[in-house]
């Protein structure tokens, strides 16, 4: 029983972070039709920048208990890298997907070098800062309160995203633009501005996701590529372009990974990609597959 709760909580924590990155990926694909491999880079940038910001804040005398708002703020601030990158991607919006994949993958590799130059090759971490909030008992298992806060924050962000897309004017304009950009423009929508906003929002989900994960694991140079591999498993399982799919896919991948790590760690990726293959065979469009947000 203890193992089951362990797997459940560990899996949900990982799913919470994965969801944020995958939601950004889905949002960008849903509206801009760009398969953005660089989402992993945003995650890594958020992680490294988050560590630096927390260290600066602590050095300036900020109480350690306030590290969470600093991490979220640093993630939001890091999303300012999005507009120039989106301007670069404009050159491939109407071109073949292979151009988009090549361009965004080259961004992943370039970011890896930027991380190496700025932060060095050694993994960075925040020590035991995540324990600042103590531990909480869930049944017979105790977990860091921080993990629970991240799960709750991710649920809140998922709810807010749903509300934003379905109930706000801008959300409706996004859905209309996702469906038909030319007709949206003919109704007065500045599509360039919408794309820049969506890309910034998608980037922000990735950078905040990266910032939230660093109190529990180190930031390393290969984290971008590792995350891209998992995020794509999420979108294939959930369905490319579907926000509900991102949620379902993240939970499945998160739980599967936690179960594999607990039972037989060597099977971690194999178990996830067995599900990916099963979904591709049984339901190629994914569980919630439809190319809309």
């Amino acid at each position: 029983m203890t193992s089951v709760i362990d797997i459940l909580l560990g899996g949900l924590f990982h799913a919470a972070v994965l969801f944020l990155v995958a939601a950004g990926l889905q949002l960008v694909f849903g509206v801009q039709k760009i398969v953005n491999l660089a989402c992993g880079s945003f995650y890594a940038l958020g992680a490294y920048f988050g560590i630096s910001c927390v260290n600066w804040a602590l050095a300036l005398g900020l109480p350690p208990s306030l590290f969470l708002p600093v991490l979220i703020g640093s993630g939001i601030l890091m999303a300012t890298v999005a507009p120039p990158i989106e301007a670069l991607l404009r050159t491939v919006y109407r071109r073949d997907e292979s151009f988009q994949l090549l361009l965004t993958f080259s961004l992943v590799l370039m970011t890896q070098d930027v991380l190496r130059i700025v932060w060095g090759p050694t993994p960075q971490h925040l020590g035991t800062l995540s324990m600042t909030y103590g531990k909480v008992a869930v049944g017979s298992v105790t977990i860091p309160t921080y993990n629970l806060l991240v799960i709750l924050a991710s649920i809140a962000i998922a709810a807010l995203l749903g509300f934003f897309l379905q109930r706000t004017r801008f959300g409706r304009i996004l859905r209309a633009t996702a469906e038909n950009r030319d007709m949206s423009a003919a109704l007065g929508v500045n599509v360039k501005w919408v794309y820049a906003s969506v890309f910034t929002l998608g980037t922000m989900l990735g950078t905040v996701g990266g910032a939230l994960v660093v109190p529990t694991s180190a930031a390393s140079l290969d984290m971008a590529v590792e995350l891209v591999v998992e995020a794509f498993a999420v979108v294939v399982i959930g369905g490319l372009g579907s926000m509900r799919g991102a949620l379902a896919g993240a939970v499945i991948v998160g739980l599967m990974r936690a179960a594999a790590v607990t039972v037989y760690p060597e099977l971690e990726m194999l178990a996830i990609y067995l599900i990916v293959i099963a979904v591709l065979i049984a339901r190629p469009a994914g569980l919630f597959g439809k190319a809309a947000i």
């Binding site: 409706r172 304009i173 859905r175 030319d182 007065g188 929508v189």
Partner: peptide, 19 residues
């Protein structure tokens, strides 16, 4: 080219948001 993901009401209201 009516937006299928929006209701009739939302389709008609949309230009009032953009202009």
């Amino acid at each position: 080219e009516v937006f299928g993901d929006l209701t009739v009401e939302e389709n008609i209201e949309m230009p009032t948001w953009t202009r």
